[in-house]
Design a protein around this nucleic acid. Structure first.
Length: 279
DNA sequence: TGCAGTGTTGCTTC
DNA sequence: CGAAGCAACACTGC
């Protein structure tokens, strides 16, 4: 599930522990997770490369390596990275790749469902889908006007689906979009064209605030996510709607109940009283 | 017991 | 072109 806050937390951990380390070898019991180049070339190319720094772009982890190379990791649904001496936890059993460093330490990729994808490319020639990502929502340059312009491209779209569209804004997934819309008092199926200025402003500011809160709490471990030490984040303790179907709305004095609907084949959770569709 | 549901994305189809 | 459906995989919970 790693969304922007979880990926941010992982990248911070990588920069603390793996910066400057030299890769000795790479192993995998599921080489299929490497998209390109082919597994043998991947192994050979990585050997003796140094990690210069790690960064995040959307939900992607990008490791800048020597040799003008970038190692891209996408955790998809259930992937997370684990550093040497990580905490034992049932979610940390699914190790499918191991990077050994010349100082004897290791970085592991655990992924129950094996959806995670790894890609090594020339930094000057990044994959198309990375280039197509929308702006970073926590960027200083991501102003309210930028936000409105992004949404304008999807006038007929439903707000939840548009918030999760990585080509519109990068990094938001199912959990954070539900929480943002609950706080902004907007129904997940509300069409972009029917949002008024007040609602847009509220979505914009809550989007920034809730993602920042997710980062402060080191991510959401309601399910499988763990940080690189194998430890849980705590955003799940602050869920207002996500997977709370049937419960009372936690908003002060709101008599509503939490309901679940499908939006673009994903489950959306919302309050049936203070998140109404308006036209 | 069995099958629907689960955080994401990209490919195929219409 | 865009949107919808589904596959990739393994586990949980009804």
């Amino acid at each position: 599930m790693p969304e922007l806050p979880e990926v941010t937390t992982m990248v911070a951990g990588l920069n603390k522990h793996t910066k400057g380390l030299i890769i000795k070898s790479v192993k995998s019991d599921w080489p299929k997770l490497v998209r390109r180049p082919d597994w043998t070339t991947f192994q050979k190319t990585l050997a003796n490369k140094k990690i210069i720094a790690s960064k995040r772009r959307g939900k992607n982890i990008l490791l800048t390596l020597t040799g003008n190379l970038t190692l891209r990791l996408h955790m998809k649904m259930t992937g997370h990275l684990l550093w040497e001496n990580y905490k034992k936890d049932p979610q940390n059993r699914f190790i499918h790749m191991e990077i050994a460093f010349s100082n004897g330490r290791h970085l592991y990729l655990s992924d129950m469902r094996k959806f995670a994808r790894v890609e090594l490319y020339d930094t000057s020639n990044p994959p198309q889908d990375l280039l197509k990502l929308g702006p970073e929502p926590l960027d200083k340059n991501f102003t309210f006007n930028k936000f409105k312009n992004c949404l304008d491209k999807k006038k007929q779209g439903k707000i939840k689906q548009v918030l999760m569209n990585q080509e519109v804004i990068a990094g938001i997934g199912n959990i954070y979009s539900d929480e943002i819309l609950w706080k902004a008092c907007v129904h997940p199926k509300q069409l972009i064209k029917d949002l008024d200025e007040t609602e847009l402003k509220s979505i914009y500011s809550n989007l920034k605030n809730i993602l920042k809160k997710g980062i402060r709490l080191r991510g959401d471990s309601a399910s499988d996510y763990r940080d690189i030490h194998g430890q849980k984040g705590s955003f799940q303790d602050c869920h207002m709607v996500y997977r709370k179907t049937g419960q009372n709305c936690p908003l002060k004095d709101c008599p509503g109940k939490i309901e679940r609907v499908k939006v673009a084949q994903r489950s959306a959770h919302y309050c049936n009283q203070h998140q109404k569709i308006t036209v």
